[in-house]
Design a protein around this nucleic acid. Structure first.
Lengths: 337, 337
DNA sequence: CTGAAAGCGCTAACAG
DNA sequence: CTGTTAGCGCTTTCAG
């Protein structure tokens, strides 16, 4: 049974001092006589005193807790980001609340409604969408907010990569290695990270005088499993493409399977390029060439920035003006191209 | 800028009633005159009142927050479990704090020290080890605790699978399909889930009169990457095994790669069996046969049990006596066996 | 039905 | 150096 929790008052009585003295000692304030200091520390330990962080938060207004909102931890890119956030948060004494939103605005709103209730000091959101007005409200209400992996203007802190450029580089690599007819597997059209990647692909084509062909872009179906068949369909004809650039690794891996099962040789017949460089991409057959996104680092930097904003706000009463941090990507060439 | 937060008192003044009345209205208590009730509700909404959950927690002693301790979200089995926990927690109005411990007792201890500080109502721990005395202390101090995926006796709530039996079934399948020399890739020896799997493997061998051979069990090296070479070494000789049973899917996938690169045909030359059935295992080449663990369900049931214990404790002053829930597993046969 | 008042555990002036 | 006191925002007796 949970014995009665010891509190400051109990310790104070036992030690024959006032609560404020105990509070000072435990807070490491120096303005306490060494002798009393030792005694208090000793008694506190002996009594098994544990501070009540809640009461402290109520008083000081800082909970040392941040919320991390992501679409879904089951999406392979998030574990690394989450780890980066948590490791960093822990380092600075913060705790993280994980929120999976499935890109559902309602879930997101209800989480925010719940968390803004003085629970958390700030938010890292990797699930921002163009119409996420609640995120902007959050910001307007003075909460530190940093966006991860998504970009919606310079008026809000963000840690991102240059999706357009990265996709352009990857496409150019394909062109440079002799591919002439490159298909693209597209993701959700309402996410700028995907429209940017598509844009990069188009740009690379353009600058190499390759006409853009709509029939070469496969729109990922609602049911991801049917992507398999769409790939086989596109590559079944005689004038099939000689390369496929997928807007993320999972789609690339499915393409790999679809092609393999249809008997096409990779990369001889068709080259396949992914995007993200999730852990698995090195384990496929053949190992996948892909664009490497510094996922863990995105997590680390988002957390650092958020924590910076939290302490800045504590000191100045408001957050520092927003910064958007654009991280570099690398092309990692393995055996699929 | 964060405008001054509206609190009960502000609303009370505006409405010309006392704070207790406002509190009653907002709590949905019925003993309030309908007329005042409406007015208060109206004013609260208009003023943009948001309750302060912290203060409420401080008063009531319940935070509606649970902690989830796992080894690492980067280990592929945890995303599903985490999702199961979070979905369930959300359904019941709880929030989850994620803690990655890397199986490091110090990290775990420091997290617990921090969280027991009246922050959380209970713990789900998937990182329990034999010597995790701090977990037992937690329990002794009255905190609801449920173990996920790990079992250390009936005196603590747990949601697990029968690792020994599942491994035995898988091994027997291999034997039944004609394999006579089966290797085993072992994980950490200090985790009972792995020693149990090894035990199941041994038992299957025994009951089919196949002598157990130490040389056939590969101990996973500290550096997971060198597992690749150990597999090639073991399978390079002329009297190589005709099957490999890996104690988890990641190890199986590495074995798959090692064998493929060494030119051995799967499953004709060597069959490969995994354990866990993570999402990826269906995407490998060839698709991996494996033991399916109901990961999401483990998360759901752990959370449900924990929340049950939390409310039970609230009502009775102590938790209900522990229950260990052993979930079934399935053998999923794909192309690698 | 409603208000006054006590206090959850802690911090931070303000006085000594 | 140390004690007293006044809250942080909310719930909950106890009296009207």
């Amino acid at each position: 049974m949970s014995e009665k929790q010891i509190n400051l008052k109990d310790v104070a009585e036992s030690a024959g001092v006032s609560v404020s003295t105990v509070s000072r000692v435990l807070d490491g304030k120096d303005c306490v006589q060494e002798k009393t200091r030792q005694r208090v520390l000793d008694i506190a330990r002996r009594m098994g005193y544990t501070p009540n962080a809640l009461a402290k938060t109520l008083k000081t207004g800082q909970s040392n807790t941040i919320a991390l909102m992501i679409p879904s931890i089951q999406n392979m890119i998030y574990p690394d980001i989450v780890r980066g956030v948590e490791d960093t948060a822990r380092k600075y004494g913060f705790i993280v609340i994980l929120c999976n939103t499935d890109e559902d605005q309602n879930v997101e709103r209800s989480y925010i409604a719940k968390l803004r209730t003085h629970w958390v000091d700030g938010f890292i959101v990797a699930s921002m969408m163009a119409d996420s007005s609640h995120i902007r409200e959050l910001q307007k209400d003075g909460f530190p907010v940093v966006l991860a992996c998504r970009f919606y203007g310079n008026d809000i802190d963000a840690v991102v990569i240059d999706n357009m450029r990265a996709a352009c580089d990857a496409t150019e690599y394909l062109i440079r290695t002799g591919r002439k007819k490159i298909a693209f597997i597209m993701g959700r059209r309402d996410l700028s990270l995907y429209t940017d990647r598509l844009e990069g692909y188009k740009q690379a084509l353009l600058s190499h005088d390759i006409p853009y062909d709509d029939h070469l872009v496969i729109q990922e179906p609602q049911d991801i499993n049917s992507l398999y068949y769409l790939v086989q369909e596109l590559t079944g004809s005689s004038d099939r493409p000689d390369a496929i650039f997928a807007s993320n690794d999972l789609r690339a891996i499915i393409a790999l399977r679809a092609l393999h099962d249809a008997g096409v040789t990779i990369p001889d017949d068709i080259a396949v390029m992914g995007f993200d460089n999730v852990e698995l991409s090195s384990l496929t057959e053949p190992p996948l060439s892909t664009v490497s996104q510094p996922l863990y680092k995105i997590g680390v930097l988002s957390a650092r920035r958020l924590i910076h904003q939290i302490s800045y706000k504590k000191e100045h009463g408001h957050v520092e003006s927003p910064l958007v941090d654009i991280l570099g990507t690398d092309l990692v060439i393995r055996k699929s191209t």
